[in-house]
């Protein structure tokens, strides 16, 4: 595979390939060695809390920001050396709407069409098609500064689809949309992916990544902390947990002494619950038996299955804790 990508990168089956991208802003390492591989035609989710470095990564991949070090190829072209070739093949919906506030919605779309090299009548036709598709025909003649947040977001999305780019970057595309707007956005994006478009999206909504992304990278503090399909991540990281409700009868000390011997990791106290990570079923049976012998009621014990939330908080929360220890 390596030899092949070196020889004919343009025909490789990776739409995006980033190797060790780094970018610093003053003291902040916004991207601290990001490496990603996004297969052509797939939907890739970049998941992370505020300030994780999602936008920084997207801005580097879309040629808006130069990496301090590291390389990346988008559509087979180097993001620094062949920036113009990259730009011919991408669409970007940034975290903040990138539209001209003073122009009307129609004028915005017309402008983008002309800049892509369409002539006047092609650009006009395309602008009207998009206004119709995004339900903006009526406000299309008004200045964008009079638009609501959702209308602006839709126009922004439309502006990214003036030409159908093979690779689409979406930085938190549904932030600030109502459920209707969110559903409509996802509709449009899934139409695009059915047509073969590669999509990289960032999100803080776990369900969104879980539901739409085939491949997810969780990033935190500028580093990829986990990568895989949603199922793989859940299987690998989101271990099921056993929760013991504590009361006067079943005290923390009692519960701990019953569980300690079997638990894979030290059980954690959460309010009046003791949370035990489970590794396998056999172990689970032993823990339940030990707890029963210590006097626990059955309705004091329950087992919770891993969700994407658990994965997310386990990854990013753990990181923070380690940092706290190091400090």
């Amino acid at each position: 595979m390596l030899e092949m990508s070196g020889r004919t990168h343009r025909d490789g089956d990776l739409a995006i390939e980033a190797v060790d991208l780094r970018r610093r802003f003053g003291e902040t390492l916004a991207a601290d060695g990001i490496s990603l591989k996004v297969p052509r035609g797939s939907v890739f989710g970049l998941l992370g809390p505020n300030g994780a470095g999602k936008t920084t990564t997207v801005r580097m991949l879309t040629t808006l920001l130069r990496p301090d070090s590291g390389t990346a190829r988008v559509a087979g072209y180097d993001i620094v050396r062949d920036a113009v070739e990259v730009r011919r093949r991408i669409g970007l919906v940034g975290q903040y709407a990138a539209v001209d506030e003073i122009l009307s919605g129609y004028q915005n779309l017309f402008l983008i069409g002309r800049l892509y090299g369409m002539n006047g009548s092609q650009a006009k036709k395309r602008a009207n098609e998009l206004l119709e598709r995004f339900d903006l025909l009526e406000p299309g003649k008004k200045a964008v500064k009079t638009y609501s947040g959702g209308m602006r977001r839709r126009l922004d999305l439309a502006a990214s689809l003036v030409v159908s780019p093979p690779i689409l970057f979406l930085d938190e595309p549904t932030t600030g949309l109502d459920p209707n707007g969110r559903a409509a956005t996802w509709d449009i994006i899934s139409t695009m992916t059915k047509g073969g478009t590669t999509v990289m999206l960032t999100t803080q909504y776990l369900e969104e990544a879980d539901q739409f992304a085939e491949q997810i990278a969780v990033i935190d503090h500028g580093k990829v902390v986990a990568e895989g399909t949603p199922a793989q991540l859940k299987a690998r990281l989101g271990k099921s947990t056993l929760v013991v409700h504590l009361d006067d009868n079943m005290t923390e000390a009692k519960a701990r002494s019953a569980v300690d011997r079997y638990a894979a990791a030290p059980p954690a106290l959460r309010q009046n619950e003791l949370v035990v990570q489970l590794n396998d079923l056999g172990q689970t049976a032993e823990i339940i038996t030990a707890l029963a012998q210590a006097g626990a009621n059955l309705d004091q014990i329950h087992i919770a299955k891993a969700s994407m939330d658990d994965v997310f908080f386990e990854l990013t929360g753990k990181n923070r804790a380690q940092e706290g220890l190091a400090a």
Binding site: T62, T63, L64, V84, E85, R87, R88, I90, L92, G94, Y96, A97, A98, V99, D100, E101, I112, L115, Y116, A159
Partner: peptide, 17 residues
């Protein structure tokens, strides 16, 4: 200040336009 500059920068156009 307007975000639209980001869009212009991500288009395949000359830097000086």
């Amino acid at each position: 200040k307007e975000g639209v500059i980001d869009r212009f920068r991500s288009l395949p156009i000359s830097r000086v336009s």
